[in-house]
């Protein structure tokens, strides 16, 4: 049975790298109403930071153009759904992009671990993408019982 939505928020911001910290703190502040553990909050911050950075760096190719859209839903049973969306260039090969250590950044200054971290720090990760239209990353995090 589909879980009911208990609360939700959505916001968007220009795809500028200075907004990466704003995004992860905005999401973790919203999730704080569920009284997560410090480790759960840290997982959420890290996963959101990766998704937002991917949108800025890959979706919009670090141009500062475009917007990043975030939706956070709190469902019953302490379940969080975090959706990070861009309307940028999209990913041609999602399987390749999700391969650990693969990086689309030739400078070698990105670890190529963004999707691996999102996958490992949340309970479920889904990536939908269409070349020329953008990418939507949906992460589900089930918080431990109080």
């Amino acid at each position: 049975m589909k879980k009911k939505i208990v609360n939700e928020t959505e916001f968007s911001f220009p795809a500028k790298s200075v907004n990466e910290s704003f995004a992860r703190y905005a999401v973790s502040s919203f999730c704080a109403q569920l009284d997560p553990t410090i480790e759960e909050l840290s997982d959420i911050r890290t996963a959101v930071s990766e998704a937002v950075t991917n949108a800025i760096v890959h979706g919009y190719r670090d141009t500062g153009e475009g917007r990043v859209y975030i939706k956070v839903r709190i469902l019953e049973e302490r379940t969080l759904v975090i959706i990070v969306k861009d309307t940028g260039c999209g990913i041609a090969d999602i399987t390749l992009a999700m391969t650990p250590l693969y990086t689309g950044d030739p400078s070698g200054e990105r670890g190529g671990m963004g999707f691996s971290i999102m996958e490992s720090f949340t309970d479920d990760l889904k990536v939908r993408s269409s070349v020329g239209h953008g990418t939507t990353v949906t992460m589900i995090k089930r918080l431990s019982k109080l």
Partner: peptide, 16 residues
């Protein structure tokens, strides 16, 4: 207090 995969990139780049 916080580090994501860009921190890994920073470490690996400085390692090289």
């Amino acid at each position: 207090g916080f580090m994501d995969s860009s921190g890994l990139g920073l470490i690996l780049g400085r390692y090289t």
